[in-house]
Design a protein around this nucleic acid. Sequence first.
DNA 1: GATGAATGAGCTTTCATTCAT
DNA 2: GATGAATGAAAGCTCATTCAT
Lengths: 204, 204, 204, 204
Amino acid sequence: MRTSDKHQKIIQSAIKVLSRKGFFNARISDIAKEAQVADGTIYLYFNNKYDILITLFEEEIGKIIVHVKQLIDDENDPRKMLEIFALHHLKLMEEKRELAEVLQVELRQSNKFMKEYRNTKFIEYVDIVSGILHKGQEMEIFRKDLLPGIAKRAFFGALDETSRLWILSPKHPYTIEEAAKQISNIFLAGIGKPGVNKTLSKAS
Amino acid sequence: MRTSDKHQKIIQSAIKVLSRKGFFNARISDIAKEAQVADGTIYLYFNNKYDILITLFEEEIGKIIVHVKQLIDDENDPRKMLEIFALHHLKLMEEKRELAEVLQVELRQSNKFMKEYRNTKFIEYVDIVSGILHKGQEMEIFRKDLLPGIAKRAFFGALDETSRLWILSPKHPYTIEEAAKQISNIFLAGIGKPGVNKTLSKAS
Amino acid sequence: MRTSDKHQKIIQSAIKVLSRKGFFNARISDIAKEAQVADGTIYLYFNNKYDILITLFEEEIGKIIVHVKQLIDDENDPRKMLEIFALHHLKLMEEKRELAEVLQVELRQSNKFMKEYRNTKFIEYVDIVSGILHKGQEMEIFRKDLLPGIAKRAFFGALDETSRLWILSPKHPYTIEEAAKQISNIFLAGIGKPGVNKTLSKAS
Amino acid sequence: MRTSDKHQKIIQSAIKVLSRKGFFNARISDIAKEAQVADGTIYLYFNNKYDILITLFEEEIGKIIVHVKQLIDDENDPRKMLEIFALHHLKLMEEKRELAEVLQVELRQSNKFMKEYRNTKFIEYVDIVSGILHKGQEMEIFRKDLLPGIAKRAFFGALDETSRLWILSPKHPYTIEEAAKQISNIFLAGIGKPGVNKTLSKAS
DNA sequence: GATGAATGAGCTTTCATTCAT
DNA sequence: GATGAATGAAAGCTCATTCAT
């Protein structure tokens, strides 16, 4: 078995266990059992419990970034880009539900117990939105009076809260695609230059 | 010292300590020291560590709800109501920064480790937004094709993510009032009936 | 309310609580609640938790001793005396069941946790049997070769173990009187001078 | 060190510590120190403090039962059997004094604080006596009018109380063998059919 | 005398981490 | 590299006892 195999096995097991129990309630032995390795083996690949979480953050968000950027690079219209980002972010709930749960819960508290840790990957992810917004402003599609830090966060927060609730509720009266479309619509209508973006999207 | 005084003292101390360390890293003895009581005294007022957190949630969110509802009741225009909600929610960051931190971080993980706990107060708070949206739709001010569960969450999420970042960053290139105004604007433009809400708000 | 009233009330409450929970599982507050006094009031009458138990031992065994001695003093035949002692000891199970439970359980472990305590009252009680045996030997009714320390303990132990089981089992195929009679019979037959005691008792 | 070694080491250490301090005053750390293991190691072998006591009961009484049954199986005369049981029971005081102390004290209170625990091994041990008595009755050596539950308890109680006192007193005016002989004698004389058992035993 | 809120020492138990095999 | 038994620090919680009222 290659080294990377066990590393990956442990990360994926950690995602499973952490999504179920949360970081503090999860035991190293839970993760080890899930990964079918001995407790001590974990420490051959990670320095400590925190290190598993941090590595998980970096690697998994890294993959997401690569993927989203690929999708967006194929597109030129910033309005389409935002729609793609929204759809992809929400689709994570279905495709990688456990990872999504971990990111939503643990990312928020990670600065409480890992004082020194700056989650640069996460910032990079959210900054994809900034980039899109900036491009839209340059192209005179989005309003110039947008405060960049605000709109970025508002858009991301809208998506994230929606996905948070999606996970909590077992049943949903709408599909992920509808949710993504609606949120994109609201934002595009809200941030678009008057008279410019009315033609793009049709509310589902 | 009256009984209620110690209860309050402990809750307020818990807010301070939890905002700094998070629930799992906070020790009962930390809270006791902050409240200037003995460890055992905590257990005269609360059943266990979780009970402190739950009581904190219920009581503090309860106060916020009462306050926001009062502000909103003085208003008739749903668009104004949303602006008020937004401003008030963000102002919590300044006025009760520590409480805000606790709510943002611990509320998100509370259903991981307190399986049986349903945070009804929190739902009630977010449902204030639903109420406003619904009223706006009835008054034909907001679009009828809004998915109620989505727009509510999107608006709340936008605010919450903004306040989350506000707390994390030491410096801000805009004021809270500007941020509230901008988010309200984006949403009102996004959810308003075409041709109806363009007159209300002027982006700051 | 006279002082002695509360003292008595506490002792009797302690008997109830200790019989149910045992010394270490019983809480001072349990006893206080049962006695309908405040926790602190206990300490006006007793030095500490151990003191309650010791006082309980001394006073209640003292009462039993007085009572048994009265009964025995009316009698001259040592064989009858033993029967009286046996019957009375077992009858305690019915009449003061809770006290009996406390004595059986706590007396046995009291020297484990109260190193300095010598239970003189208890010794005095058991020595009633010695007295009877000695008298029987003097009167040439009981065998001279009895080891005094042994027979006393054997007789008392037989009774005590019988009463212990009586308490544990909810149902019994014999009456207390039958049990007392049988044990007396066995002992009297066993310790009597051959040819002397065969006429006294009829096995029930 | 083999697994079973630590299990045994802990049980034996528990016997030492419990005999000295009693269950409630004994600390897990006392037992761990005595066993020369870390506190946490105890919990690799036992579920909790109670589990140590229960396991101790079951295993040690189990050994005693096996041993006594072997001794008795070599014998046919129920009178001899009783003598063997008496002698062996009392000899435990010398050979396994600490175990004897634990059994005498903790067994009596175990049903107070371990509500669900039925000490079947202990019942099995005492029932060895029942078996002997029954056999003696069948062989027409013991009186038919013996109440089976009574005589068994009386005999066992006589022995146990004797051994209890043996442990408490530092000095003894008689040997264990004499004590066993005397108690057997008393009982055999008391329960034997008139005219049958007079020939067996000579009082020491 | 009576109260009961407050105290804080002390306990059992957990679990991240180590290290001999 | 892999194991998992062993470690021991650390924390939540209890409860006998005190003392201001």
